[in-house]
């Protein structure tokens, strides 16, 4: 059997005295969509940062397609996983096309520039960015900027997408489009892990829901198993009707 695309074995994270994540075990199967939900400060972004190798675990190991993340180079990682961070600010007024093209950086030298441009052009059209292509990204609205970063992440063509609050800033149509893109990624054999506050929208289309609470995995499993009034209420510490 194929190893899971992501396997977190006894992983914990602490910064100085603060325990950000207690030891957890979670795995994500290739070709699946996993969503991480939970209250603010419950460890969702920390968990995603560990999966992204953006944060080194204090204990335990994170395996990406059977390989220890800590033993992979930045270049190898960039070909395997793309990361959408919450930060969408770009410090200088680069054009929309410049930013999307950066998604191809991991592949420079392994593909012709014609192939790279083709991928960029295709994704810009898909994300409806053609009209904005020459606009400075600093002049865009929050939602538009988010779309540019999503395009950049997709241009990376990584088998695993790690998306931290991909839907924030997006309007209703934007969120619908995002869901479509995530499902497309999964359908083509890739995987997606998404952190969201919009559990009602994303959790039902997910293959797996990871419910976090106070730095622990409160519940993990199929949406129907995790998304119950009881488990959500106890995770959020307040009555919550599903």
């Amino acid at each position: 059997m194929q190893p899971p695309i992501l396997d977190l074995i006894d992983v914990s994270a602490r910064s100085k005295e603060l325990i950000r994540l207690h030891a957890i075990n979670v795995s994500v199967q290739a070709g699946s969509l996993a969503c991480i939900i939970g209250p603010n400060g419950s460890g969702k972004s920390t968990l995603l940062a560990l999966m992204a190798a953006d944060l080194a675990p204090t204990t335990g190991r994170v395996m990406l397609a059977g390989r220890d993340l800590s033993k992979m180079t930045l270049g190898e990682l960039a070909k395997q996983r793309a990361v959408l961070t919450q930060e969408t600010t770009v410090s200088f007024p680069f054009t929309v096309r410049d930013v999307v093209e950066w998604g191809r950086i991991p592949w420079l030298g392994t593909m012709s520039s014609a192939e790279n441009s083709e991928i960029v052009a295709e994704i810009m059209t898909k994300l409806k960015l053609d009209e904005l292509a020459t606009r400075p990204v600093t002049s865009l609205s929050g939602g538009e900027r988010k779309r540019v970063h999503i395009a950049r992440v997709l241009a990376q063509k990584a088998p695993l997408l790690l998306l931290d609050e991909a839907d924030s800033d997006l309007d209703l149509i934007g969120r619908q489009e995002l869901d479509k893109l995530m499902l497309e990624q999964v359908k083509s054999g890739g995987s997606v892990v998404v952190v969201t506050h919009d559990a009602r929208r994303i959790a039902p289309i997910s293959d797996q829901v990871i419910l976090m609470s106070a730095g622990r995995v409160h519940a993990v499993g199929k949406p129907s198993e995790v998304l119950t009034t009881d488990s959500l209420s106890s995770a959020f510490g307040s009555p919550l009707k599903w």
């Binding site: 992204a52 953006d54 930045l74 990682l77 960039a78 990361v83 930060e87 950066w102």
Partner: peptide, 10 residues
């Protein structure tokens, strides 16, 4: 792009 996003691009 900021440190984290740049790191993720290798």
């Amino acid at each position: 792009l900021g440190d984290r996003a740049a790191n993720a691009l290798g």
